[in-house]
Design a protein around this nucleic acid. Structure first.
Lengths: 254, 254
DNA sequence: GCAAAAGTGTTCCAGTTACACCCATGT
DNA sequence: ACATGGGTGTAACTGGAACACTTTTGC
């Protein structure tokens, strides 16, 4: 099968087996090297990027479809994954321009519906555990810095903006730290995450006092060595206490 | 046209002109007589109730469709209306049971899609300004107390539960008071609203101090007379300051 | 030894909570 | 007159914000 045949077969399959006119897109956040990242796909033979997304089988739960997409792109299961907005404008983007930038064959114009609404999900994942995996529509799947995004297809730039806004709002109420950090991490690293999401510096003493005061962290008998300076302690989350603190609404950072 | 003919014509029109397999439902909140209310429809010739809902035309924005539904049932425009959850489970409710309870003619079984996902919206309206208006599928459209809901079709009971949970979470950040209260109201009335939504009593002195301290209320030279006791002052919202306080994140009630 | 990051405690202020009495009104 | 809800102030407490110095490490 040529790429074009593959493409047409895929969209025909979607048209017959999936809910028509509805898609979903995942904004997958990771944190690495003091930067907040999102996982993006580069469309085959182009320099155009898009969010990992997909369609919903006629008898499939929408949340399950999002998990499926996420699993295919990251290799991970049981992720923190949440709906954040339905993008349902009558005209979300310039469809002809998008198809042209995607280098889609004209044949597809008849197969794709005129207008699609998309459910936005955001996911928080441990950067170190992800194996970014491209799909057959894409040349590559890579982490991109949210503050330095490439040219995006569709309205995916706006979708990322809304996801970021939601992330900031929910930082205080959701287990953001738990899901974005690796197993073991230092308090300054966690602080960098909070600073990155909130977009402003935090006082190290207050941060330390507060985060340890919640008793959701356990200090390990290990330090992160190899840095040029004093070795910080490694911690890991105490998931049980973390859940408790969330339920009690104690996790508030301002 | 008989009712059955009308019904079939409607669902055929929906099948041809609307996005198939997708609907929206509105949880319309009002506040009256110290009770939080939702607007419900009683299905024709039955004792079964449902939320006002509808379908999305193929070239219509989903938000616009929600506004349309809301306008048709309340007569109001420019309402506080917000997405809160996409209900997308593979099996949301027992479809045969529901059709039976709705007394739908068997003819419809072929027209309606097997499975529908629905976008949940919630609206906050001024009870006194609403003219509840039934549609042709319903015998009546009335306000029901959220703590005393009748037998509901579909998964609408769960949808209301999720809407209520969202309302409680957003009480501190959204202009709940502004949208649920009439033009003029007293502070004790507003306190009843907050108490009702939060589900617990608040201290009158602290509430008064706090709400007036935000300078989002203007005291009028009028009092509410006719009550059996001391006449409370009437207030109205200062919308400009209200917006400011929201932006600054000052509107927090705990 | 030196530059840079990690670790730690105290004080101050603001905002929340708890609490009691007098006033106005309709019955 | 009286019962009921409306209106108001103060004191204690809690949690967040501001702030500086010592320790450790690799270079």
């Amino acid at each position: 099968m040529t790429y074009t045949e593959h493409l047409i077969a895929y969209y025909k399959k979607v048209a017959s087996e999936c809910i028509s006119g509805v898609s979903l897109d995942c904004v997958i956040f990771g944190f690495h090297d003091t930067k907040l990242k999102v996982l993006l796909l580069r469309w085959k033979d182009t320099k155009e990027w898009s969010l990992p997304g997909g369609f919903i089988y006629k008898a499939e739960s929408v949340d399950a479809a999002a998990e499926r997409v996420l699993h295919e792109r990251t290799g991970l299961n049981q992720l923190f994954l949440q709906q954040f907005h339905l993008f349902g404008d009558a005209v979300r983007y310039d469809q002809n321009d998008t198809l042209r930038r995607q280098k889609m064959p004209d044949l597809l114009f008849g197969i794709c519906p005129d207008r699609t609404i998309t459910m936005g999900y955001y996911a928080l994942v441990d950067y170190t555990k992800v194996t970014p995996t491209a799909d057959f529509l894409s040349d590559e799947c890579v982490w991109c810095d949210v503050s330095d995004l490439p040219s995006m297809l569709y309205d995916h730039r706006q979708i990322i903006d809304v996801a970021l806004k939601t992330l900031r709002l929910q930082l205080n109420w959701q287990p953001i730290g738990l899901n974005l950090m690796p197993e073991k991490f230092t308090i300054p690293e966690l602080q960098r995450l909070y600073e990155t999401v909130l977009g402003r510096p935090l006082d190290a003493r207050n941060f330390h006092k507060k985060i340890t005061g919640l008793s959701i962290l356990t200090r390990l008998n290990e330090r992160r060595t190899g840095g040029a300076h004093k070795s910080p302690y490694l911690y890991h989350f105490d998931r049980v206490n973390y859940e408790k603190a969330l339920i009690n609404g104690n996790l508030i950072f301002v």
